[in-house]
C-alpha cells in the first residue's frame, strides 16, 4: 500500500517536472529573443588610401553586422564586391588584382565590443567602447583592437563608429612596385553603423 502510494507520488512528481520542462521550452526562446541584440544590413564602411599620386576611396553601404549587447559579441560580414569607387577601373582592379574577390568574396570580423552597461543602453548618450577581435581580409586573419564610440538614440537605435588603420601587406595583398606610390602603406578604414534592436 505504502509502496503504491510512493509510486503515485513519484508519477505526480514526474508529471510536474515534465510540465516545467515544457513550460521552460516555450519560455526560453522568448528569453533568448529578449536579449539585447542589435543588427543591420546597411552599415557603411569606407576606406581611404591617400598618397601624393592619387587618392582612392571605396564605399560599401551593404555591411552586415550583429552585436549582442549581453555577451558583447560583435560580428561583421563585408561583401568585397559591394565596394563602390569613383572610377570603374579602380573597382575592377580592386576586385581582380588586389582583393581577389572571386576567391575571397567577404571580409569578416568576429570579436567583442565592450564598455557599455545594460543600464547605459536604456538611455540616450554617447559612450566610448573598445572593439577587439579577429579581422579576416583576403583570407588572412589578424587580431585588431580599436576604440570606437557608441551613441544610444532616443528611439532606442544605436549608432556605432570606429576608425582604424589596416596594412594591405598584413593581409597578403601584394602591391607591385609599379603602383607602390599610388597606394598608401596604411589604409584608413572608417566604420559607421546604424543598428536597430533585433
Amino acid at each position: 500500500m505504502s509502496a503504491a502510494h510512493w509510486n503515485n507520488n513519484e508519477t505526480t512528481d514526474n508529471m510536474n517536472t515534465f510540465k516545467i520542462a515544457i513550460l521552460a521550452a516555450f519560455l526560453l526562446p522568448v528569453a533568448v529573443s529578449a536579449q539585447d541584440r542589435f543588427g543591420t544590413r546597411n552599415g557603411h564602411i569606407a576606406f581611404f588610401s591617400e598618397t601624393p599620386m592619387e587618392n582612392i576611396e571605396g564605399n560599401n553601404h551593404k555591411v552586415s553586422s550583429v552585436w549582442d549587447a549581453t555577451s558583447g559579441a560583435l560580428q561583421f560580414a563585408v561583401l568585397i564586391k559591394a565596394f563602390e569607387f569613383e572610377k570603374a577601373l579602380m573597382q575592377e582592379h580592386f576586385n581582380e588584382n588586389y582583393m581577389e574577390s572571386n576567391t575571397f568574396p567577404k571580409a569578416e570580423f568576429k570579436g567583442k565590443m565592450t564598455g557599455v552597461t545594460a543600464e547605459q543602453l536604456k538611455k540616450p548618450g554617447t559612450y566610448d567602447v573598445l572593439v577587439e577581435g579577429d579581422l579576416t581580409i583576403h583570407g588572412v586573419t589578424k587580431p585588431v583592437k580599436t576604440k570606437g564610440t557608441l551613441t544610444v538614440e532616443a528611439n532606442g537605435t544605436i549608432k556605432a563608429s570606429s576608425d582604424f588603420m589596416v596594412r594591405p601587406e598584413d593581409h597578403g595583398i601584394k602591391i607591385p612596385g609599379m603602383v607602390r606610390k599610388n597606394i598608401a602603406e596604411q589604409i584608413a578604414v572608417r566604420v559607421r553603423m546604424d543598428y536597430t534592436r533585433m
Partner: peptide
C-alpha cells in the same frame, strides 16, 4: 554566438 549574422 558563433554565428550571430545568421540572425539577419
Amino acid at each position: 554566438d558563433d554565428d550571430l549574422l545568421k540572425l539577419l
